[in-house]
Amino acid sequence: MLIRPKEGILDPQGKAVERALPALGFEGIGNVHVGRMVELEADDPEQLGELCEKLLANPLIEDYEIQPL
């Protein structure tokens, strides 16, 4: 599961990373967002959407994606 701040919500972590890039010589990188990844094994992947809604993400402030590994 990839969980990231919703579009339009101030993401100070992403901004801090972005501001550090020029000092390290990285050019032309923008729109940085920092989220988190949750890895798990599930017998029934059908229930993972509900798991994200109820616990792993806060739908008010975060979007999530579910990807098979």
């Binding site: 101030l10 100070p12 972590q13 801090a16 806060n58 008010l60 402030i61």
Partner: peptide, 16 residues
């Protein structure tokens, strides 16, 4: 807020 008893959410402070 997480329990849904109050509206909204609390995020990392603007200046981290």
């Amino acid at each position: 807020c997480e329990a849904g008893l109050l509206p909204g959410a609390l995020l990392r402070n603007q200046e981290l």
